[in-house]
Amino acid sequence: MAPKVTATTISLDAQTHEDTHVHAVYDQIASHFSSTRYKPWPIIDTFISSLPTGSIGLDSGTGNGKYLPLPLDPVKSVMTIGMDRSRNLLLIAQNAGGKERSREVVWGDVLGGCWRRGAFDYAISIATIHHLATPERRRAAVERLLESVTPHGGRVLIYVWAIEQDVLSKRSIPGEEEAQVQETAGRDVFVPWVLSKPTAKGSPQLDGEAESPQVFNRYYHMFEAGELRGLVVQAAERMGLSVGEEVAGGEKEGVEIVQDGWERSNYFVELRRWKRVNGI
């Protein structure tokens, strides 16, 4: 299905816009949406698989929780806690991976900081930040992610939708491009969700879900090249973190951009926080 994407502008205040065109929509389409979202992207499985046993992580904007059971090949044991703004999606995410109510989920907002600071070893935010309606809110979401992980090696992976929707992979090497974000970066669009079947096979009917075919316009901010990296740089600056690799005798605390690229119509960035103990 190739949805027809239409341009849009934010006419309401950002919170109201997101409530109407993101949160309310996902609560309505939860089980249908979930029935179409079951395959985790390989790069995310690779990321989770690279974490040492005993790691604890946050999936901010977990949706139906499809990343919560990762890694697929569980030679290592980690635990991911899912957070989302849609309660109907969380009711599905609780059972992600087939084991009934085996997942830990929290009803929360990506702009909230309901965690002990630095409590997590890793945080992922997949296809979520692009639902926020202003550059400030998107940057704040990156700050919350960076705050949630430990300054001593905490890792973050972020995916957002790209304007560039072709199938050619073009990875950029960290440091290659200069981050420069303007108010006009990216593109605000509506992506329709056609709810043809009220209840998908095997999915429970949830409260408040629509009974007849309906079209819901979901709001997205499509990212342009360099924009995600730019948000990271801004977020790091506001947190007093230097951007780049850890250098002996250099800055005390920072965030390294481990990889930064484009994959399957999405931009992604992987980050690692570092902090030098006793100035060494």
Partner: peptide
């Protein structure tokens, strides 16, 4: 239902 509401 086992879900904490952390929204403000």
């Amino acid at each position: 239902n086992g879900i904490p509401n952390m929204l403000l």
